[in-house]
């Protein structure tokens, strides 16, 4: 079952309120550039985990690989 970048974008944005995501990818490997106040003040590990939590066990399975770049928003 193929995954679209658009689906990932919508799920990140609805899963983490106030977030905007720009997702590109080929159906298996994706790159997400994500910004939002939810990431401010968190460690990199915690920032990435917020996004991993949106997808749970689909990562590494249905979503083969997701590369993440976070731009924490300074102020909400």
């Amino acid at each position: 079952m193929s995954v679209s970048p658009e689906e990932l974008k919508q799920r990140i944005e609805s899963g983490i309120p106030g977030t905007s995501a720009n997702v590109t990818g080929d159906g298996a490997h994706f790159e997400a550039i994500v910004a939002g106040p939810a990431f401010a003040g968190l460690s990199r590990i915690a920032q990435h985990k917020l996004i991993y939590d949106v997808f749970g066990t689909e990562l590494g399975d249905r979503i083969h690989a997701l590369s993440i770049k976070i731009n924490p928003t300074e102020t909400a």
Binding site: R44, I45, H48, S67, I68, K69
Partner: peptide
């Protein structure tokens, strides 16, 4: 845990 590839590259 430091992280995965993305975090290692950034750091």
């Amino acid at each position: 845990l430091v992280g995965g590839c993305d975090i290692v590259v950034e750091m």
